[in-house]
Simulated assay, not measured.
Amino acid sequence: MPARDSNGHLIPVQQLRPGDHAFVSYGNDEIRWDVVTAFVRLGLARGEKVMVLPCPTVPEEEVLARIDFPSRSTAAARERGQLVLSSMRAVIRPDAEFTTARQLGRLRAETDRATAEGYTGLRAFIDMGWVAALDADLAVVTHRETHADTLFAGRPYTEVCAYDRRRFDRALVAAMEDAHPRALLERLGSLRSVRGADDAVCFIGEADAANRASFTRSLEIALARTAPARRLTVDLTRLHFLSVGCACGLLALVHDAAGHDLVEVRCGPGHRRLLRRLGADEVPRLAAREAIRP
């Protein structure tokens, strides 16, 4: 059974936008690079200035090698100052002890500086490994994470806070995930299905060939679950990618869902065009409606 998620909390990293404050966690040293590399490259492509504060225990050479792979385009961004590697110690300097006021003030100033330099905004990826490195008070850190709205509201600033599940207590990680307005899928290319409002099935991530079986199975379960109500909403607005195969599978299942009076498919304009080109308008009981993530 898919988890419930009625407010669009979980999204893929590709759907982050200015004003988002997001959580991500990882459990091994390979997965940790999935989100940060995508986050960096998307920010550069969108004309934003990008700050990366990696875990202090990871050598800078490894960070640069991971970010640069598979091309060296990020090296040029570093040379022109659009991509900056930093640390929490540098952010709060000259203070030696972390305080919420000092960190927020510096990040606010860096955002203003980025726009003054001609960038569209600032985005920061902050690995929370700095907490142990600075021996920071967890209560102070938690307060910052839950009282940083002024840094984001109406401002061109985006932030991802990454928690290593091997370093932090499980309860704290869960609390931080709930506290952030957004949470990210930890792996690129993954697909999640969750229960939304009105028993909708919501897909998040990438519905590609590798995930087609999972995509189809989740649709079958959702159709069976909503048979008594005779209607189902399929939310695709948090999909980064929808393959032709998955789209065709969706249309075929809806076509055969004789026990339903209506299957409403909510999706972005690109996915709606794909469904219409594949014959969605000819499928009985299917209504494809364009929707934008709130």
Rank of each mutant, 00 (worst) to 15 (best):
Pro2Arg: 03
Arg4Glu: 09
Ser6Tyr: 08
Gln14Tyr: 10
Leu16Asp: 02
Gly19Arg: 12
Tyr26Gln: 08
Gly27Ile: 09
Glu30Ile: 00
Glu30His: 04
Glu30Ala: 09
Asp34Asn: 12
Ala38Ser: 03
Leu42Asn: 00
Ala45Tyr: 02
Met51Leu: 14
Cys55Glu: 02
Thr57Lys: 05
Glu60Leu: 02
Glu61Met: 09
Ala65Met: 12
Ala65Asn: 02
Ala65His: 07
Ile67Ala: 03
Asp68Met: 11
Asp68Gln: 10
Pro70Gly: 00
Ser71Lys: 10
Ser73Trp: 13
Ala76Thr: 09
Ala77Pro: 00
Glu79Met: 07
Glu79Pro: 07
Arg80Thr: 14
Gln82Met: 02
Gln82Trp: 08
Leu83Asp: 09
Val84Ala: 14
Ser87Met: 05
Ala90Asn: 12
Gln103Glu: 08
Gly105Lys: 08
Arg106Glu: 15
Leu107Pro: 04
Arg108Lys: 11
Arg108His: 15
Arg108Met: 15
Ala114Asp: 01
Ala114His: 02
Glu117Asn: 10
Glu117Pro: 10
Gly118Pro: 11
Gly118Trp: 08
Tyr119Leu: 14
Thr120Leu: 08
Ala124Pro: 06
Phe125Gly: 09
Met128Ala: 07
Val131Lys: 00
Val131Tyr: 02
Val131His: 00
Ala132Trp: 11
Ala133His: 15
Asp135His: 15
Ala136Val: 07
Leu138Ala: 04
Val141His: 09
Ala148Ser: 15
Thr150Ser: 15
Ala153Asp: 15
Tyr157Ile: 03
Thr158Lys: 12
Arg165Met: 04
Arg167Trp: 13
Phe168His: 00
Asp169Gly: 15
Asp169Ala: 14
Leu172Arg: 14
Ala174Trp: 09
Asp178Asn: 14
Pro181Ala: 01
Pro181Glu: 07
Arg182Pro: 04
Glu186Arg: 12
Glu186Gly: 13
Leu191Ser: 08
Val194Glu: 13
Arg195Glu: 14
Asp198Lys: 06
Val201Tyr: 03
Cys202Leu: 11
Phe203Trp: 13
Ala207Met: 01
Asp208Phe: 09
Ala210Thr: 04
Asn211Gln: 11
Leu219Ala: 03
Ala224Cys: 13
Ala227Ile: 05
Pro228Thr: 11
Ala229Gly: 06
Arg231Cys: 10
Arg231Trp: 06
Thr237Ile: 01
Phe241Val: 01
Phe241Asn: 04
Phe241His: 03
Ser243Asp: 09
Gly249Lys: 06
Gly249Ser: 14
Gly249Asp: 15
Leu253Arg: 04
Val254Tyr: 07
His255Val: 02
Ala257Pro: 13
Ala258Asn: 11
Gly259Asn: 05
Asp261Arg: 12
Leu262His: 06
Cys267Thr: 15
Gly270Lys: 15
Arg272Cys: 13
Arg273Gly: 09
Leu275Ile: 02
Arg276Pro: 06
Ala280Val: 06
Glu282Gly: 15
Glu282Ile: 10
Arg285Gln: 14
Arg285Tyr: 04
Ala288Met: 01
Ala288Asp: 06
Ala288Asn: 00
Ala291Phe: 04
Arg293Ser: 11
